[in-house]
Amino acid sequence: MAGLLDKKRDREEIQVPLAGMADIAFLLLIFFLVVTTIDMDTGIGMTLPPKLDEDQEPPPVRERNVLNLLLNAQGQLLMNDELANVNQVREQVVRHVTNFGEDPNLSERPGVAVISIKTERNTRYERYIDVLDEVWMAYFAIWDDAARSGEYTGGRTFRDYDHYRNQLGEDEDNEIREAFPAQISVAEPDRG
């Protein structure tokens, strides 16, 4: 036995075989490759209104500042009491928010403009998202315009709103969003 070992040592040096390590690492690598999901969650972000106390009244809003969107169970849309199509929503929201008091039926100024979406209990979720998406797209269009004009950003103009937002510091105020706050209210459907 001793002789055999000696003989081996003569031929080559004894060392830990490293060739298999790569295989083991590969196997683990493939396992983690398969189980990894890098898909980021995307969606429409919203902030729910905080719960009001029993005796607390909801803040008063003037009627002209509210754009009412009503969705019924059949998927029909009423926009300020007129039957409308979903692809008219975006334009109407832009007009409503950026009215600056011109039209007496639309909002007084962007800061107080509210978009109210009301559904029925058996409205399909898909329809609700369609309408909500259009409202958000309208706000994105308004913000893009504001970023390009530079009116709210101290004279500096940007290619679009994303560029403006990305260059903001951690505790810098988002002037555009303050000038045009997205006030979307989701009204509770009537019971029954």
Partner: peptide, 8 residues
């Protein structure tokens, strides 16, 4: 939807 934001 179109108006998507990413949650990082």
């Amino acid at each position: 939807a179109e108006a998507l934001t990413k949650i990082e």
